[in-house]
Amino acid sequence: MSALLRIEGLNVSVGRGGPRLLRDVSLSVAAGETHGLVGESGAGKSMIGKAIAGVLPRGIAVRSGRILFDGQDLTALPRRARRRLVGERIAIIPQDPLTALNPCRRIGGQITDRLVHILGWDAGRARARAAELLDEVAIREPGRVMQAYPHEVSGGMRQRVLIAAAFAAEPALIIADEPTTALDVTVQRQVLRLIGELQARHGTALLFVTHDMGVVAKLCRSLSVLYAGKVVDQGPAARIFGPDPHPYARALIAATPRYDRPEESLMPVPEAVIAALDAEVAAADRDWTDG
C-alpha cells in the first residue's frame, strides 16, 4: 500500500552546520490513517508538522531528506507550487485557537478564507459550506457563530471552529498540533471524538502531535516516539503500549499518573534511559555531515 505521506531521512537544522532539530526522521501515514507524534517538550514533534507544511521558523531549514506527499517531494517543489499543493490538500489544527484566530475579524470569514483564496470558490458557496461544517462540528447556531468574534465564544467552541476550518477544503491530510491540550478533559473528549468522526467520514489522514500518552493511546493506531528530534520508537500502538516498547516509550508511559493504579509507583524517566538516548544522539551526530 502506498503511503499518502512518506518522510524519508529528514534532517532539519538551525543554519548550515548548526544544531540539528530533526535527526533522520522517517515515517509514513496512509490515507485515512491516524499517526501520533509523541515526546516531551523540545523533542521536535511540532517541527515535523512545520516542515511538512513548509512553515519552519526563519533560520531553520530542511538540510536533507524528502517529504513525499502523494508521490511528490514537497522539498523539491518550487515555492509557489508547494504553497498551492499544501493549501489545497493539507490543513493544520493549531494548539491555541485564540492566537490562531484573528481577534478583529468575524469567525465566518476566517473559515471561508481558504475556500475563497486558495480554492477560488465564490463567497456565497464558501459561506454555505462554512455553515454546513459548523453544523458538522456540533455547533448549534452556525449563523450566529459565523457572525461572532473569536472572544465571544468559549474555548471549546473556538477549537471546533478551527476544526471546521481545517476540514473545510476536504484536505487529504490534517496536521493537528496539540489541539486539545488547553481544553478541559470533558471538552477534550468531545473534540477528539469529533475529529475522529469527521476523519472517518471524510477519509482524511491525521498526523496528531501530543505530549499526552493517554490521548495518543486512545486516538492513534500507530505512533512515533521522539527524543531530541530522533524517532526512538515507531510502530503500532498495540505493541508500544503493550508488550514491547522501547525503554524510553515504556518510561514515558510509566511516568503518566493513572487514577486506576494509585498504588503503582510513579517513575520519572530513569537517568540511565536518558543517558543511553543522549549517547545514541551524539553518535548519530558524529556520523552526520551537513551536505
Binding site: 493517554g214 490521548v215 493511546a217 486512545k218 487514577y259
Partner: peptide, 8 residues
C-alpha cells in the same frame, strides 16, 4: 473523560 494510556 480521562484518557488512560491503554490503546482502546
Amino acid at each position: 473523560a480521562i484518557p488512560l494510556p491503554d490503546p482502546d
